[in-house]
């Protein structure tokens, strides 16, 4: 336990001193703010910039607060995820490649403590970022589009946080299993590729690991399909545990690949 605390302390120091814990939430805040504001002022922006043809009638869809939060989620799902994956995909492999891990691995450390400290700090940064992003989005959504039900919002947020912790487990496990470049490629294919795959033919599948974000959004409004929610939640939790176990195993197995 004390060893886990020491490793945790090291990771926290690292994310603090490299400003990760500051700039990634900032990116999410910007992403979260952009959709409610942009959509609200789109008409004014178009009027100010574009010369509309005479008699041009623009029909803007009537957007609900849930739609705006869904749009923000879309931002987090693309740019947000890429930023998080790129930041944490080297967390174990880079230390092995540059040799800083060597002096840790020659000590009697537990690879479980090592992996968990890496994953938990990645989760912490990701969770802070997502909460900050949604808080920013929610603030302008409520201000400009009307209220959101608290219990629904909390349910949505909690479900999305499970998703983001799953992504971090995949990222850190890949980092434990492969070199940084390969780990990055595989994680992007699995997460971003999977999300695209899901959006193309997802409607034919009742459950898939990539359905969690849309499951989360389904909690926001009664119009969304809420069937299979529990199934998707269980599937994701199962995968989360699988990737953590895989990561710990890979940490142990690849310890000798550290640069001496």
């Amino acid at each position: 336990m004390s060893q886990f605390n020491v490793l945790m302390g090291k990771e926290l120091r690292e994310s603090w001193r490299s400003f990760k814990i500051l700039w990634i939430p900032l990116v999410f805040i910007l992403l979260g703010v952009s959709d409610p504001i942009l959509n609200y002022y789109l008409m004014d922006i178009l009027k100010a910039v574009g010369e509309m043809p005479e008699g041009f009638q623009m029909v803007m869809p009537e957007l609900s607060p849930a739609d705006i939060l869904a749009a923000s989620t879309g931002q987090f799902q693309s740019i947000g995820l890429i930023v998080l994956i790129a930041t944490f995909v080297g967390t174990i492999s880079r230390e092995r490649q540059n040799g800083t891990a060597t002096l840790l691995y020659v000590r009697p450390i537990s690879h479980m403590a090592l992996f968990l400290s890496k994953w938990l700090v990645a989760c912490l940064v990701a969770v802070i970022s997502v909460i900050a992003g949604y808080a920013a989005s929610l603030y302008y959504t409520v201000l400009l589009y009307g209220p959101v039900q608290w219990d629904q919002f909390i349910g949505m947020l909690a479900t999305y946080l499970l998703w983001i912790c799953l992504i971090m487990a995949v990222t850190v496990a890949m980092s434990a299993a492969f070199k940084t470049v390969i780990a990055a490629t595989l994680t992007i294919i699995m997460v971003i590729g999977g999300t695209i795959f899901e959006s193309l033919i997802g409607s034919f599948l009742s459950i898939s690991p990539w359905k969690l974000p849309s499951s989360a959004l389904s909690l926001l409004s009664d119009y969304y399909d809420r069937t299979n929610f529990i199934l998707n939640l269980s599937l994701s939790t199962g995968l989360l545990i699988f990737f953590i176990v895989l990561g710990i195993f890979m940490c142990q197995r690849n310890a000798s690949t550290t640069e001496i």
Binding site: K10, R13, N98, G99, T100, L103, P108, I260
Partner: peptide, 18 residues
């Protein structure tokens, strides 16, 4: 044995931020 050994590699690498 890891608990009673001290090791110095040829090119020791440290965490630059510590």
């Amino acid at each position: 044995m890891r608990s009673v050994i001290g090791f110095l590699p040829q090119y020791p690498k440290f965490f630059s931020w510590l």
